[in-house]
């Protein structure tokens, strides 16, 4: 197995371009959560030229809507949601300096192009490994859109959050190359 890389947020361009597709990564530091509803609001603000509630430069967004935290836990189950739904809102965020995204599932060509142009990375966390992932989340606080409940923007303090580089800043895509290597039938 490839050796695991430890990275600390904020994620600089230099760090981002050093990450290669297939790298196992453990992320520590601050990351922000946002799902569909929060993305819609961020996109509207950008369109109107208004300031965003969080600074995006060199930040990492995690596509997640955690389950409520049981007593004694910093965070409830918190695995990734399908990233594809965020695609239409994402390129302008990358232009604003967003450096990393954690989710699961395919991305659009427009997102990949923006990642290549600005040097951003897409990480996959294991879908459905939500209880395991929640152990690496040490503290959670709401920073914007509290009315959205689980869909609000949260600041998460994470330690050794496990994920894999699935699309690197050069556009290499493990969702394509991985299955290709193991496919033994002809494509439909």
């Amino acid at each position: 197995m490839d050796k695991t890389k430890r990275i600390q947020t904020p994620l600089t361009v230099q760090q981002a371009v050093g990450l290669k597709v297939g790298d196992n990564v453990l992320i520590s530091g601050v990351i922000y959560t946002a799902r569909d509803a929060a993305h819609r609001r961020l996109a509207e603000l950008l369109k109107e030229g208004k300031p965003l509630p969080i600074e995006l430069e060199d930040q990492v967004l995690y596509y997640v809507g955690p389950a409520p935290a049981p007593p004694g836990h910093a965070c409830g189950a918190a695995g990734p949601t399908t990233s594809t739904r965020m695609d239409i809102y994402t390129p302008p965020l990358i232009e604003k300096g967003l450096r990393g995204m954690i989710g699961k599932g395919l991305r659009s060509q427009a997102v990949i192009e923006a990642m290549k142009k600005h040097g951003a990375v897409y990480f996959a966390a294991t879908g459905g490994a939500a209880a395991l992932i929640s152990k690496s989340i040490k503290k959670v606080e709401v920073v914007a859109y509290e009315d959205l409940g689980t869909e609000a923007i949260h600041r998460m303090y994470v330690e050794d959050f496990p994920c894999i580089v699935v699309i690197d800043s050069y556009g290499n895509n493990l969702y394509e190359s991985g299955p290709q290597r193991y496919r033994t039938c002809k494509t439909l």
Binding site: G65, T81, G128
Partner: peptide
């Protein structure tokens, strides 16, 4: 972990 800690195995319950 979910079974031991009695927490949801996935956040999408």
């Amino acid at each position: 972990i979910a079974r031991q800690d009695r927490i949801a195995m996935c956040q999408d319950t």
